[in-house]
Write a protein that binds this DNA or RNA. Structure first.
Length: 112
DNA sequence: ACCGTGACGAGAT
DNA sequence: CATCTCGCCACGG
């Protein structure tokens, strides 16, 4: 009975889908929001599977440095930057410009 | 069933 | 300040 395994992948997708346009967040932030203090790797791994998801803007998820570490996993290494640019987020040298300004914290923005 | 790897992060040295 | 190591959960071989 109650063999409910926490499907972190699905949880990650739901949070990422809530990221407003023009904002970005980090893997660790999402992980921490889900209760995974150090499960940031899981979030990135989930993003890899997100390729089949059209409602999961993985380009809005970067590492804690604001670096587009996952750009290499997109259709094209420049795809992530282009998508962010289309969202109104400027990227320079594989890094989000004004990262702190466009940073989106679920615990804070969602009013927890 | 065991080991290694992975779109990360924080702490320790 | 830079570099290294461990932790986290899931999946592939």
């Amino acid at each position: 009975m109650s063999n409910e395994k926490p499907n972190y992948f699905d949880l990650v997708y739901q949070v990422v889908r809530e990221i407003p346009k023009g904002r970005v967040t980090s893997y660790g932030t999402i992980a921490h929001y889900l209760g995974l203090k150090s499960g940031a790797r899981m979030v990135g791994y989930a993003m890899n599977a997100a390729h089949s998801m059209s409602d999961v803007p993985a380009q809005r998820v970067v590492n804690r440095n604001g670096l587009l570490t996952g750009k290499n996993h997109f259709e094209s290494p420049t795809r992530m930057q282009e998508l962010l640019k289309a969202d109104g987020v400027n990227v320079e040298n594989d890094r989000v410009v004004d990262f702190e300004k466009v940073f989106w914290d679920p615990e804070k923005e969602l009013g927890l």
